[in-house]
């Protein structure tokens, strides 16, 4: 049963990931990405990491993809006829670049998998046995031995957010008069 569910979830996430690249419509791509994330969350769940699965859906599905969708919907998607013509036409450079990236990622993954001593069967092993509270374990790890790394990551994220805000905030082209008065006021 678990094996079957795993294959279904894996197939869904892989097919959806393919769909992200293949579909011509950006909104469709975003939805495919969501499907892929959901599949991955299901795999987490099968492996016994409820918390990770929920966070995956909450953060990626509920927040990040919504923002993606928000931006994608606001984008000018261009002429649908031209887009349809482009569909299915692969430029050589694009093909080469994509294959290179995907190939190297696959190579790294294969090497990593080959060098790791994976316990098998996978699922029987990863189910938490004897009522271990995965949430508690994760919390204890995060706020115990790894608290410094955790806080460091959060500070880094905060700094990134502030930095992005500063960079992205457009300098307002105020009329000269208004600008000068505001300067006077501040002075």
């Amino acid at each position: 049963m678990v094996d079957l569910l795993f294959y279904v979830a894996a197939a869904v996430s892989v097919l959806c990931a393919l769909g992200v690249v293949v579909s011509a419509n950006p909104v469709q791509s975003v939805m495919m990405l969501l499907g892929s994330f959901t599949g991955i969350a299901l795999i987490y769940l099968l492996a016994g990491f409820q918390f990770l699965a929920a966070i995956q859906i909450l953060v990626y599905g509920g927040a990040i993809m919504v923002l993606f969708l928000f931006v994608v919907m606001l984008l000018n998607q261009g002429d649908p006829v031209a887009l349809a013509r482009e569909q299915g036409v692969l430029h050589k450079e694009q093909l080469a670049g994509g294959l290179a990236v995907a190939g190297s990622a696959l190579a790294v993954l294969l090497v990593a998998v080959a060098r790791t001593d994976l316990p098998r069967p996978i699922f029987g092993y990863l189910w938490p046995e004897g009522g271990l509270d995965p949430l508690l374990g994760m919390a204890q790890a995060m706020f115990g031995p790894y608290v410094l790394a955790f806080e460091g990551a959060s500070v880094l994220l905060l700094a990134t957010a502030v930095g992005v805000m500063t960079l992205a905030k457009r300098q307002r082209n105020k009329p000269v008069a208004a600008a000068s008065t505001s300067e006077e006021a501040s002075a």
């Binding site: 909104v27 939805m31 969501l34 409820q50 918390f51 929920a54 966070i55 859906i57 909450l58 599905g61 509920g62 927040a63 919504v66 969708l69 928000f70 919907m73 509270d133 995965p134 949430l135």
Partner: peptide, 24 residues
């Protein structure tokens, strides 16, 4: 579920897709 509350919040976060997709 141990993560019951999180489960509710995660899924209710997904409910916005219906509105966005319907709208788009």
């Amino acid at each position: 579920l141990d993560i019951g509350l999180l489960f509710v919040l995660a899924l209710s976060g997904l409910s916005v897709y219906g509105v966005i997709l319907g709208g788009w």
